[in-house]
């Protein structure tokens, strides 16, 4: 037996004392920069869909009802809380909140839906200036994600069966 080692180890334990935090009985504050559940502000949102184009989990859907109305739906199921949506938002309409107790049995609890009134851009209808060429998604015109089944509609026909994709709506450029 290595008695000396055991004594030293005992000392380490005694010195540490009690370290268990009283969570969840008491709230545990998070740091300022914490990336919790993203909150969408409909008043600030201009409907550029930059967040939807850059969401790694494809959890933000966009559906153009008509030229004037765009629906933006954040599902949050697979959300990785990476904060890229907040990064690329040109209007700072998305904030990464401090909410982290988001576990739920009903998926609707974390869903956010924005009905946006859109004004028309003279050139392309929908504008989003990407911060860099890497943020580009080669989508132009209207987006019609599948809101009913809550899934993204992939525009890239490259290697998919045709029924899984929807053609881009062509917009005449003046």
């Amino acid at each position: 037996m290595s008695v000396l080692s055991k004594l030293k180890e005992t000392l380490v334990c005694l010195k540490a004392g009690r370290v268990t935090l009283p969570y969840p009985a008491q709230a545990q504050p998070v740091p300022e920069k914490f990336r919790g559940r993203p909150i969408f502000d409909a008043a600030k949102c201009i409907g550029c869909a930059g967040c939807a184009n850059n969401c790694p989990a494809r959890e933000i859907l966009v559906f153009d009802v008509c030229q004037e109305v765009r629906i933006l739906k954040y599902l949050g199921r697979r959300c990785a809380y990476c904060g890229r949506c907040a990064d690329v938002c040109p209007e700072k309409a998305i904030t990464m909140s401090h909410e982290f107790e988001n576990a739920t049995n009903s998926i609707g609890d974390i869903l956010q839906k924005l009905d946006l009134f859109m004004s028309t851009c003279q050139r392309c209808g929908r504008c989003f200036k990407e911060p860099s060429p890497l943020e580009q998604l080669k989508l132009k015109g209207y987006r019609m994600d599948d809101l009913g089944n809550e899934r993204w509609v992939y525009r890239s026909k490259a290697f998919l069966n045709e029924e899984q994709t929807v053609d881009d709506v062509k917009i005449e450029l003046g």
Binding site: V30, E32, R35, G83, R84, M96
Partner: peptide, 16 residues
């Protein structure tokens, strides 16, 4: 968590 906003998933890099 203080630096990146999360304990484990730092979401640190972008290309460049």
């Amino acid at each position: 968590e203080k630096i990146s906003g999360n304990r484990k998933t730092y979401a640190l890099c972008l290309i460049g």
